Amino acid sequence: MSRRYPPLNPLRVFAVVARLENLTAAAQELHVSQSAVSRQIAALESYLGVELLRRERHGVTLTRTGASYAKQVLPAFDEIASATEKVLRNASHGVLRVRTYTTFTAKWLIPRLPDFHARHPDVEVLVSNAVPDVDFDRDAVDLAIQFGDGHWPRVQLDLLFPDEIEPVCSPQYLKSLPRGTSKESLLGKRLLVSHYRRTDWEDWLAATGRSSLAESAERMSFSTSVLTWQAALDGLGMAIGQTAMLQAEFEKGTLIRPFNQPIRRLKAHYLVRPASQRFSRRVEVFRDWLLAEAKKTMA
């Protein structure tokens, strides 16, 4: 059996009048006219079929039924107000909670965060790392940076930059080739593989027509891309690099791109926000800053 609820706006007006026991004060708190308050009370009394207020010469008083009803209604509105305040307080807390994955955090976000803090010292950024896609109903975060095809339900998306990949190795590793040996021979040696990006080598080899050159290559796997690239830095072999994540290594010359033939995949890096999100200055300034930094990466 469905429960019966009175019209909620008249009920809210009654709760204010019952608390103040004054129509004029109630009208001022609700920012409406006194006659509007009277109409709402009359509508509630009509629905309930009882008199809730006694109109007297010097104001209004609650009837016995009205007082009994108010005794139960007022705590309910207090609970609603308390719950609403909690939600709004959590939404407006000074900490900006950002979720992403380890490689993006270590290789792209952290090197740029000092600039954000210099521009917005009042915004504290709390970064958490996880591989599964964010669920804003489940995960206590304001924003997420995700890698994928962009087909996620109930979110707003901003494209940061596409996934561009190509082989990378240390300069010393390339120089270790015997004189006169083609750099293509590197593809038959040890290839370094990241666990979460196991198809990168096959994608690049197929896209550049070099799959047959790597058929006999040894594969060495690592749990993350960061460890895979560290292995390349230390001369263990050649890895597939994500161009956007390795700008610092390319500029320093600690990693090089022997083929200089990047390919772009259909997936990309996105900034993800809840489909419905209360306006927050800290979210807006971080989003604007992040998009500006991503634009520099794509330049």
Rank of each mutant, 00 (worst) to 15 (best):
M1L: 14
P7I: 00
P10M: 02
V16G: 01
A18Y: 02
R19V: 00
L23T: 13
T24N: 12
A25K: 15
A25D: 14
Q28E: 15
L30Q: 05
Q34P: 05
A42I: 07
Y47K: 11
L53N: 09
R57F: 09
G59W: 05
T61D: 09
S68L: 14
A70N: 07
Q72D: 07
F77R: 03
I80A: 15
S82L: 13
E85D: 12
T105G: 09
A106Q: 15
I110C: 09
P111V: 11
L113N: 06
L113V: 08
P114C: 08
H117G: 00
R119Q: 14
D122I: 01
V125P: 08
L126H: 15
L126Y: 13
L126C: 15
V134M: 05
D135V: 09
R138D: 10
V141C: 12
A144E: 03
A144T: 02
G148N: 10
Q156H: 10
Q156M: 10
L160G: 09
P162H: 12
D163G: 04
P167T: 10
C169N: 08
C169D: 09
S176L: 02
S176H: 02
G188K: 11
L192A: 05
L205R: 03
S211H: 03
A214C: 00
S221V: 01
S225G: 12
G237M: 04
G237N: 09
I240H: 06
M245D: 09
E249R: 12
G253L: 06
T254C: 02
N260T: 04
P262L: 09
R264Y: 03
R264N: 06
R265A: 01
K267Q: 15
K267W: 07
K267T: 11
H269M: 05
M298F: 01
